[in-house]
Amino acid sequence: MDARLRRVNKEISDCKNDKSSNISIDLVDNSPFHLIGEFDGPEGTPYEGGHFKVDIIIPESYPFQPVKMKFITKVYHPNVSSASGAICLDILKDAWSPVLTLKSTLISLQSLLCSPEPRDPQDAEVAKHYMTSKSSFEETARYWTQAYAGGSGKEVRGKGRADGPRDEIAMAGLERAHVEKFQAMGFDRTKVIDVLRRLNYRGANVAQINDDKVVDELIKS
């Protein structure tokens, strides 16, 4: 039997037999080379209470080439693309080793959620948010967990429940008052949210960005 197939089958069954790790790996279709991994968000992080799914592709030369993984569940995190779910993690790139397994790699993703590395970002806007105001970043990450990962989001205050329509302002990690201020000047709400997010209009940055700059950007957009 093909070495890659044998190893992957063994990894899948090892993971099924291990109930302690709370990590699951399942087939997407009939191929053992396209899988879905799932794990819970780590406790004590904005991802707590969420359940995260990861798309897994086993390359032809596995385990000599790294497995390809990206988040299916949307995640607000400096090292995960908020649009595509692409992940920036060294072991998925040049620090891969053939002794790593699907399970150990998923555990590494879980710990990436505990320890963001904003200096090596996958999503530059999210990384800026993180560095400008960690508390505002965490509130947004919690909101995303609640909205997309089925988290209870009990700590998200005053932002509405995920079962209602999603709050675009909370999604973007902005303050309602800021958005409303520019909306009152006659700009479209979606545009305002888009521009303020791009300008990283948060925390101490707000004082640095004057209104003319924002209006300029709104007119250009």
């Binding site: 030369s61 000599f64 080439q65 790294p66 040049d94 891969w96 080793s97 053939p98 002794v99």
Partner: peptide
């Protein structure tokens, strides 16, 4: 493989 950089996998 080039990816190994001739390093021990462990």
């Amino acid at each position: 493989t080039a990816a190994s950089k001739q390093q021990c996998p462990m």
